[in-house]
Design a binder for these strands. Structure first.
Length: 829
DNA sequence: GCAAGGTC
C-alpha cells in the first residue's frame, strides 16, 4: 500500500486548490465530520479554518466577581480546541498518516496556525512533519514548494504566541477591572484592548478637537469675469509673506476690496499659464484601498468586506484580505482581460484595453507574499447570480483591475491672473485632454472647470462681484474607511481584522452613527486609560510588540522573556489603577448615564433615562426608581440612541432606533405616548380570529411605543394582530377584499400614496417575501436560484427543510442533491 | 461574559 501523506492548509479553499494542482485535477472530495477532505492515491488534503484552538484562562478564573482582575496577570493560560469538528478530523487523518505536510499561509500568523496543527498531530503521530511555503497558489509555486520541503519555524510561531498571550492578559485584566469598577457586568461590560483602544482614542481625540474648536470669521471675494459672452469665476487673492492667500480676516479690508473691485468694471489679464499634468492610474487593490473605494459607493467597511468574501467564496474574485499592491509575476493581464471580451458589461472596455500597445499594470509600494492584490479571477458570474450590491462591488473590483492596466489620463491646467484696480483675481481651469483610465474606471472624480482661452493684456468685463462671509470649520470626523487607513498607517490591527475592530466599537457602545461619533462612555474609558494605562491607548504598545516579536523570531529574545516583561509592566499599571478604582468607577458610571439621559420626569422631576428590562427590551424609566415608577415604552426593534435634537414641549431628547437597514427616528417618547393616548381605534371589520365566535373586531391601533397595528378589540383575550407601517396617514377605502371581508387601505406618506390593500393579504405577501429573502441568505442562492426553487414549489426555508434532496434535484435544473443537503445542513445549524 | 488573530 502507498504511504499515506496528509497535507494541512489554513482554509478549505486553499486545500481544494492545492489538491487540484498536486493531483492534476484527479482529487475527489469527501466529507469527514462535516469537513472537506480532498484525496487521491495516498494523499489527503484538509483545510483548517484559521486558528482551530484558542487561548483562555482555566475555569477557576471564569467568574468575574470571584477573581481579582490583577490575578489574571499570573494566571495559567491554556489552549483549547475551538473548532471541534476540524480538530477531530485532523486527529483521525494524522492517526492514519505516514507523513504530514503543513501548508498554512506564508506569514507569521500562518506559522502559528501551522504550529497549532503540529501540536494536534503530534498527539497521535510521531513520523515526519514537514513545512512547505509558497506565496501564491499557482502550479509552479506549489510544485516547487512541495519539491523543497522545510521545517516549521518554531521561533516565528513563538513570536505569534507571545502576541496572543499578551493581548489576552492585558485585554482581559483591564476589561474586567473597568467593568467591575463601574459595576457593568453581563452584556454591557467595558472593554479595552491593544488595537481597539488606540482606535477609540483616535475617534475621541478628534471629537475633543471638534468640541474645542473656536470658529473664526473670514471673507472671500469672487468675481464673475466675461470674455465674448463666456463667463467664468475668479477669486480674489493677495500676497501674504510670499505665499498666496484668499482668506481676508479683517472685515474692513474685505469691504474695501469689495468696493474697489465692484467699481472697477474691468480687469486686465496679467498672466496666463498652461501646463499639462499626468494623472496616473491607481494601484492594485489591497484591503484598505478596496474598503475606501467601496466606501465612496456607500458601503460600510463591514458590508464591503462581507460582500467581497462572498464573491471570493463563489470564485469570482481573489482573496479579499491582503496588504499586497503588486500583482504577482504569474498574473497574465492579457489573459485576464480576454476573459471579459464578449460580455455585455465589460466586453468593450476589455477590448479597448487589449488594443493598447503594451499592457503594464501599475504597482503600489507594498509587496507581500501571502496573497495577490484583490482582482477578478476571470471566472465570470452569470446574469442573475449576483444581487445588486454584490454586482456593484464585483464591478468595482473588475474596473479597478482594468484601471491598473489602463493608460494615464492627461489634464490641461490653465491659470489666469487678472488685475482690477490694483487687486488680483485668479481662475484655475482644468480640462481632461486624455481620458486614460477614467474611461474604464468611472469612480474617481474627473470633473472639469472650464476657463476660456485668454491672452496677456486682454481686458475682461467684471459681471458680478460677491463677498462671501465664511467661518473656519472644525476638523471632520473620521469616516470608517479613513479610520481604517489611519489604523494601517499606525501599524495597528491587520488587513483581516481592522474592519472587525470598528464593528466591535459599535457593539460595545463606544461609537454611534456613521461617521462614528464617540459616546460619553468612550470618552470616559479613554480618559481612564490615558491616566492610568497610557500604553494600552497608544500605538506604541503595538510598535513595542512588533519589535519584541521580531526579536523572538530572530532568536534574539525568548517567548518567556518577552511575556514576563509585559506582565511586569501590567503589574505596575495595576498598582496605580487600584488606588483610584472608586474614582474611575464613578466617572464611568456618570458617563454611562449621560449617554442615556432624556430629560425631566413629568411626575417627580428627576431624570428620565433609557433603561433595559430584565428581558432585554428597552424602555424609558425614571432615575428616581423605585420611589418614582414612571415609564414610557420604546419601539421593540433596534437599539435606542439618544440624539442631540430634542422636543421643546417636553424638554426631552429624541430617540433613534438603530436596526441596520430598518433604522428609524422614533422622536420624542413622550409625544409618541401622548399621541397614542389621544388616538381612537378605527374599526376595520370582524376579527379574522374570533369575529365569528366572540364578535371581536379588527381595528387600527396606535400604540404608546409609536408602532401601529391592526389588532383585535378584545385584546388581551384575543391576540390576533397584523403589523402596519409606522409612518404616514392610513386611509380606509370603500373597496373590500373579498377573501377576508376587510377594507383596502391606502397610506399617505410623502407625495405618493401607496396602496397597502387588505391588511391580511398584505401581511401574507410580506411573510412570503421574508421567506424568499431567508432562502437567498443561504450559501450560493441568488435571486435566479430562488426563482428556480419557487418553480419547484419551494418558497420558504421550511419547504426546503421538508423536501427530499434527490427529488428536488430531479425537478430543479442546475441544483444537485448534494447542494440541497448542504442548504439543509446550513438551515439546521 | 474578557483580546486579537485567523476564517465563514
Amino acid at each position: 500500500m502507498a504511504p499515506v501523506r496528509v497535507i494541512i492548509t489554513e482554509k478549505d479553499n486553499a486545500a481544494r486548490r492545492i489538491a487540484d494542482i498536486l493531483s492534476d485535477g484527479t482529487a475527489d472530495a469527501e466529507r469527514r465530520n462535516g469537513v472537506n477532505v480532498y484525496r487521491w492515491g495516498g494523499t489527503r488534503v484538509v483545510g483548517l479554518s484559521g486558528h482551530v484552538v484558542g487561548l483562555d484562562f482555566p475555569p477557576e478564573y471564569e467568574n468575574w466577581r470571584d477573581v481579582e482582575p490583577v490575578e489574571l496577570i499570573d494566571a495559567e493560560v491554556v489552549t483549547e480546541p475551538t473548532q471541534e469538528n476540524i480538530v477531530r478530523t485532523l486527529s483521525e487523518l494524522a492517526a492514519e498518516a505516514d507523513e504530514v505536510v503543513i501548508a498554512t499561509d506564508y506569514d507569521r500568523e500562518g506559522e502559528l496556525i501551522g504550529k497549532e496543527a503540529y501540536e494536534l498531530v503530534r498527539e497521535v503521530f510521531d513520523g515526519p512533519i514537514e513545512r512547505v511555503r509558497f506565496s501564491s497558489i499557482t502550479d509552479r509555486e506549489v510544485h516547487e514548494a512541495f519539491d523543497n520541503p522545510d521545517d516549521l519555524d518554531f521561533d516565528l510561531a513563538a513570536a505569534g504566541e507571545a502576541r496572543q498571550v499578551i493581548d489576552l492578559i492585558w485585554g482581559a485584566a483591564l476589561t474586567r477591572f473597568l467593568s467591575l469598577s463601574a459595576r457593568q457586568l453581563g452584556n454591557d461590560f467595558i472593554s479595552v484592548g491593544r488595537v481597539q483602544s488606540p482606535t477609540l482614542k483616535l475617534i475621541v481625540d478628534r471629537e475633543r478637537e471638534i468640541e474645542a474648536f473656536d470658529p473664526e470669521t473670514y471673507w472671500e471675494l469672487f468675481a464673475d469675469l466675461t470674455k465674448d459672452g463666456d463667463t467664468f469665476e475668479a477669486q480674489y487673492f493677495y500676497d501674504d509673506d510670499g505665499s498666496e492667500a484668499e482668506r481676508v480676516w479683517d472685515e474692513e479690508v474685505a469691504t474695501t476690496v469689495n468696493e474697489t473691485v465692484e467699481s472697477a468694471d474691468t480687469a486686465t489679464v496679467t498672466s496666463v499659464s498652461r501646463r499639462t499634468r499626468t494623472d496616473s492610474p491607481p494601484d492594485p487593490f489591497n484591503t484598505t484601498a478596496f474598503i475606501s473605494a467601496a466606501g465612496s459607493l456607500g458601503y460600510s467597511a463591514q458590508r464591503a468586506m462581507s460582500i467581497a468574501e462572498d464573491l471570493y467564496t463563489a470564485g469570482y474574485v481573489t482573496y479579499p484580505r491582503t496588504d499586497n499592491t503588486v500583482y504577482p509575476d504569474d498574473l497574465d493581464p492579457e489573459a485576464l482581460l480576454d476573459s471579459f471580451v464578449g460580455t455585455d458589461e465589460f466586453g468593450d472596455d476589455a477590448e479597448s484595453l487589449l488594443a493598447l500597445e503594451d499592457i503594464e499594470p501599475t504597482e503600489g509600494d507594498e509587496e507581500t507574499t501571502d496573497h495577490p492584490p484583490i482582482h477578478p479571477t476571470g471566472e465570470l458570474p452569470a446574469w442573475g447570480d449576483l444581487e445588486e450590491d454584490e454586482w456593484n462591488v464585483y464591478e468595482l473590483i473588475v474596473r479597478r483591475f482594468f484601471a491598473t492596466v489602463a493608460e494615464a489620463a492627461t489634464w490641461e491646467h490653465l491659470r489666469v491672473v487678472a488685475e482690477a484696480d490694483g487687486h488680483t483675481l485668479k481662475a484655475n481651469g482644468k480640462r481632461l485632454v486624455e481620458e486614460g483610465y477614467h474611461a474604464v474606471y468611472p469612480y474617481s472624480s474627473a470633473s472639469e472647470n472650464v476657463v476660456p482661452d485668454l491672452e496677456e493684456g486682454e481686458t475682461l468685463a467684471i459681471a458680478d462681484v460677491d463677498l462671501a462671509e465664511k467661518e473656519t470649520q472644525p476638523p471632520r470626523r473620521y469616516g470608517q474607511s479613513r479610520l481604517i487607513k489611519q489604523m494601517e498607517k499606525m501599524g495597528i490591527g491587520t488587513k483581516a481584522t481592522r474592519h472587525h475592530i470598528i464593528e466591535k466599537l459599535y457593539d460595545r457602545g463606544y461609537i454611534e452613527d456613521d461617521p462614528p461619533q464617540p459616546t460619553k462612555l468612550a470618552e470616559a474609558v479613554v480618559d481612564a486609560a490615558e491616566a492610568f494605562a497610557d500604553l494600552v491607548v497608544s500605538e506604541e504598545m503595538t510598535a513595542q510588540l512588533e519589535r519584541d516579536m521580531t526579536a523572538i523570531a530572530e532568536g534574539e529574545a525568548t517567548y518567556e522573556e518577552v511575556t514576563e516583561e509585559s506582565r511586569e509592566m501590567l503589574r505596575r499599571v495595576f498598582a496605580e489603577l487600584r488606588e483610584s478604582q472608586e474614582e474611575i468607577g464613578d466617572h464611568l458610571q456618570e458617563s454611562l448615564k449621560a449617554d442615556r439621559r432624556l430629560g425631566p420626569c413629568p411626575e417627580c422631576g428627576d431624570e428620565l433615562l433609557v433603561r433595559r428590562s430584565r428581558q432585554g427590551s428597552y424602555f424609558v424609566g425614571c432615575d428616581g426608581f423605585p420611589d418614582c415608577r414612571f415609564t414610557l415604552p420604546l419601539p421593540s426593534t433596534g437599539e435606542p440612541l439618544v440624539l442631540e435634537e430634542h422636543c421643546e414641549d417636553h424638554d426631552t431628547n429624541h430617540v433613534k432606533m438603530l436596526a441596520g437597514r430598518d433604522t428609524f427616528v422614533h422622536g420624542c417618547p413622550r409625544c409618541a405616548a401622548a399621541e397614542a393616548d389621544e388616538s381612537e381605534d378605527r374599526i376595520l371589520g370582524a376579527c379574522p380570529e374570533c369575529g365569528g365566535e366572540h364578535d371581536g373586531e379588527l381595528a387600527i391601533k396606535q400604540l404608546r411605543s409609536g408602532s401601529r397595528l391592526a389588532g383585535c378589540t378584545r385584546y388581551p383575550d384575543c391576540e390576533y394582530s397584523l403589523p402596519l407601517p409606522r409612518r404616514g396617514d392610513i386611509e380606509i377605502t370603500d373597496e373590500y377584499c373579498e377573501e377576508h371581508d376587510l377594507p383596502e387601505l391606502v397610506v399617505q406618506d410623502g407625495d405618493e400614496p401607496w396602496e397597502l390593500g387588505c391588511p391580511v393579504c398584505n401581511y401574507q405577501e410580506y411573510q412570503a417575501r421574508q421567506a424568499i429573502d431567508d432562502l437567498e441568505d443561504l450559501n450560493g442562492v441568488g435571486p435566479a436560484t430562488a426563482e428556480k426553487l419557487a418553480d419547484a414549489g419551494v418558497d420558504s426555508p421550511e419547504d426546503l427543510t421538508d423536501v427530499d434532496p434527490d427529488d428536488l434535484a430531479q425537478r430543479t435544473q442546475g441544483v444537485t442533491a448534494e447542494t440541497v443537503r448542504e442548504w439543509q445542513a446550513e438551515l439546521a445549524g
